[in-house]
Write a protein that binds this DNA or RNA. Sequence first.
DNA 1: GTCTGTGCAAAACTTTTGCACGGCA
DNA 2: TGCCGTGCAAAAGTTTTGCACAGAC
Lengths: 147, 147
Amino acid sequence: MVYMKNCEDLAFPQEIKKTKQREEIFRILSEETEPVSAVDIYNRLAQTCGNSNFAISTVYRALGIFEEKGYVSKSTLMGGDMAYYEWNYGTHKHYAICLKCHKLIALKKCPFEHMKIETENDNFMITGHKLELYGYCKECRIEDEDI
Amino acid sequence: MVYMKNCEDLAFPQEIKKTKQREEIFRILSEETEPVSAVDIYNRLAQTCGNSNFAISTVYRALGIFEEKGYVSKSTLMGGDMAYYEWNYGTHKHYAICLKCHKLIALKKCPFEHMKIETENDNFMITGHKLELYGYCKECRIEDEDI
DNA sequence: GTCTGTGCAAAACTTTTGCACGGCA
DNA sequence: TGCCGTGCAAAAGTTTTGCACAGAC
């Protein structure tokens, strides 16, 4: 995990070789406040750089490197079949996902920060976790009073 | 969510039409104590019933129905690209996943049972959640002292 | 007959891989 | 030269879909 003092410190990681493509992918990830899929990134590249010389495999490969070095975290939202990627700003984030409109709402803080969790035999060393909440956002509850 | 008093109550759900294929899929799910993939189920069907007349699409369709009615929960473990399915015994389960040997270890209880979680605008109605823990199990820590 | 579930094959979709080329030290 | 990243196409793997048929009511 890479820790930074604040968002202004955000820069392309030194340990990863810079290329035009990786810089663009980094820019998109760093501008984004929500997890994005590889295809999202690819489409956004097509918009900004013309539908020119970017390959989807380049996106996957760059994301793979970023993830391997701990700069990006990968997750599968809503048990879906596509992976979403998000730049790691030191502290991780969790989301609540509206079951109706699929909007993501960030949690104020990680509920596990100071929590002790017991596994079956109490002999598991926990190093990380993933959490997703499901439910209904304010707007969807107002629209549909059954909820 | 379907609540049952205990495991002996476990029976094929009345609201779903019984077929030979669905009963077999149900049996495999109910015998299994860990999440299984559609392909796992398919292979186990091939073993028990001969490699005869079962189609993988039948497995997916049955799982889809079970999930839709709330009897089965689907998840993607370890950010992988395959979905795993598990029969819902009323109370849900969480797992700790060993990053080395990939073994699953069940949590003693859900850490969210009585927890209040705040979202950004405090206007989200939480109805469910998914949690995965990562780390190292006892055996893998002993084998590899670096951990 | 009607309805629903199924097997089979094909398609769709996400992700990975092989390979040749291009840029750069 | 050697190395690494890339584009392109093809492949792999998971999941879905179309269609005709079989079985139940």
